[in-house]
Design a protein around this nucleic acid. Structure first.
Length: 524
RNA sequence: GGCGACGUAGCUCAGUUGGUGAGAGCGCUCGACUCAUAAUCGAGAGGUCGACAGUUCAAAUCUGUCCGUCGCUACCA
């Protein structure tokens, strides 16, 4: 997002809607956690946030999977959809809505949006004939086939002839190029004056989308007659929309498209999509073109992340993606431990290595040793030297400058959807505080103003850093908040004011509690 | 095949528009401290920034070639 966001403004963030063909795994969790953390940060800024996630439930794959299991498609979809919903609940995901593409509101919105595109002349009827792979739900040309089989599934394709409706994607080449080139990157909206919304970030992915457009866009088939498990085409009910073109529209559905235009118009300009690089083509090319065809502006901002790798390979290829579940990791590290490790260990954008050891390291180093231990040692010293009452920070503390720097860096990072960088800045502040304590050695001082100033400063950092860390570890920071005697909730704090030095009032009871994050020792 | 990404200390990674002696965390060695969750703090060892060539007063940072790894190529984050 650009720096044009002003406090109190609308902010919409979405995850992809997950296909119910697959059960929730760490890859889904990764995308959803990033969106959640960004949503939480914007709530702290006082923005009016709408955070959307959900499930994608149509298509032949689902229809057949349901049949195989002896279920109705909706029943099958509901079961998996509920697993996603419960996984997000377990991970403390703060979504404001959970959309299912099988809901009436979505069917309505899909029909309304594509009817507009149809009315605008961007959808036409034609016949499609070709070799179709059912699991892929895609046609293949002969060159793509391997020994007559689908190159992905290694199984025979089925020859099919279909009357399809086509979307005139080719008509949007210039507009898409303009959108992609006109955004951000070098020399875009650098002054924050307003007009500049970015198209796709990080910019490498923007270039990739540009490359797709430059390679030439063919019109795409967007309907099927061979199946019934989908959204009916309003002007020709023998057809249903192909699952992707129905799925993308969920983002519009949830904001009231076709049902509550006032609400839609109010929220739509603030949309930010989180997505993985594998679906860049759909979000960075097809979706914007569909919006153009329906006359919807402006286009959303896209934030594209890479893959979690296992031993250098995509987790879904190694089988590692489903071998280790979010439930297991939460069992070992707690909700916040898992959340923190996922956000801290993987910079948003590039592919990055996922490992259990990496989670252990993030948990022990950052949560147990740096943050948790700081809270413990400060509480103990306040107990011994300040009678258990937390003093106010000193006005001229050296730490105040460090806190201001850390906040500025973290704010910038959160604003550009870089949770790992934001947490890095936050933890640097905590480490500086540990250094500060080692230097001041308050435990050697006699009770008095000097000790009070040192401990007040340390408490103040705990207060500020807890707010800054809250998008990642929302439960733990509330514990720390209460322990240092503060009222209310971290989530009720409003930035940037709450990050200002001097917010810890002093005179509060500081409690010595159990370690917040007991060091994790891998069981033998 | 086409398009793209990546290759920086043992490990995982940062390194805006090319410019002070190349960084962080972890791990390792040594030391300090003992308020704290065997934690914390300090010092140190360790890299010809994949290779080669080029542009430049100056390149990890730009260009080209090559090597290696990986991804996408109509639908698994």
């Amino acid at each position: 997002m650009s720096s044009t966001e002003i406090p109190g403004s609308k902010f919409v963030i979405t995850t992809p809607i997950y296909y119910v063909n697959d059960v929730p795994h760490v890859g889904h969790a990764y995308a959803t956690l990033n969106a959640d953390a960004v949503a939480r940060w914007h709530r702290l800024l006082g923005d009016d946030v709408f955070f959307l996630t959900g499930t994608d439930e149509h298509g032949l794959k689902i229809q057949r999977a349901a049949e195989d299991g002896g279920l109705e498609p909706l029943e099958h979809a509901t079961r998996t959809s509920e697993r996603f919903a419960s996984t997000w609940k377990m991970l403390n995901i703060s979504n404001d809505d959970f959309i299912r593409t099988t809901e009436p509101r979505h069917h309505q919105a899909v029909q309304a949006l594509l009817q507009k595109a149809y009315d605008n002349g961007y959808i036409y009827a034609d016949t499609y004939e070709g070799d179709y792979c059912v699991p892929c739900e895609a046609y293949y040309v002969e060159d793509d086939l391997v020994d007559g089989n689908c190159p992905i599934h290694k199984r025979p394709v089925e020859h099919m002839v279909e009357d399809n409706y086509f979307f005139k994607l080719s008509a949007f080449t210039d507009q898409l190029t303009a959108w992609l080139e006109g955004s951000d990157a070098e020399g875009g909206d650098t002054d924050g004056s307003g007009s500049g919304r970015n198209s796709i970030r990080p910019t490498g992915y923007r270039n990739e989308a540009l490359g797709i457009v430059r390679q030439g866009l063919d019109d795409v088939s967007i309907t099927r007659t061979s199946i019934s498990w989908g959204v009916p085409v309003p002007w020709d009910t023998d057809h249903v929309f192909y699952v992707w073109y129905d799925a993308l529209i969920n983002y519009a559905t949830a904001l009231g498209f076709g049902a509550d235009e006032e609400r839609f118009d109010e929220w739509w300009p603030a949309v930010h999509h989180i997505l993985g690089k594998d679906i860049l083509r759909f979000h960075g090319v097809y979706w914007p073109a569909m919006l153009m065809a329906a006359g919807i502006e402006p286009l959303p901002e896209l934030h594209v992340h890479g893959f979690l790798l296992l031993g250098g390979e995509k987790m879904s290829k190694t089988g590692g993606l489903t071998a280790i579940t979010p439930e297991e990791l939460v069992g070992d590290f707690g909700v916040d431990g898992f959340r923190y490790a996922m956000l801290r260990n993987h910079s948003f954008g590039p592919d990055s290595d996922f490992s259990y050891e990496g989670i252990v390291e993030a948990f022990n180093t950052d949560l147990a040793n740096t943050y948790g231990n700081l809270v413990s040692r400060v509480a103990t010293v306040v107990g011994k030297k300040c009678g258990g009452v937390g003093p106010a920070p000193a006005a001229d503390a050296s730490l105040s400058a460090a806190a201001a720097t850390a906040y500025a860096e973290a704010a910038t990072a959160w604003d550009s959807v870089q949770p790992s960088a934001a947490l890095d800045a936050t933890w640097r502040l905590l480490r500086e505080t540990n250094e500060y304590l080692a230097e001041m050695e308050p435990w050697k001082m006699d009770p008095g103003p000097e000790v009070d100033a040192v401990m007040g400063n340390a408490l103040e950092v705990i207060r500020i850093a807890s707010i800054m860390a809250s998008p990642a570890i929302p439960e733990a920071v509330e514990v720390a908040w209460k322990r240092i005697g503060l009222d209310g909730l971290v989530s009720e704090q409003r930035l940037p004011a709450a990050a200002g030095w001097g917010g810890y009032p002093g005179g509060l009871d500081v409690a010595i509690g159990d370690p917040m994050f007991p060091r994790f020792k891998p069981s033998a």
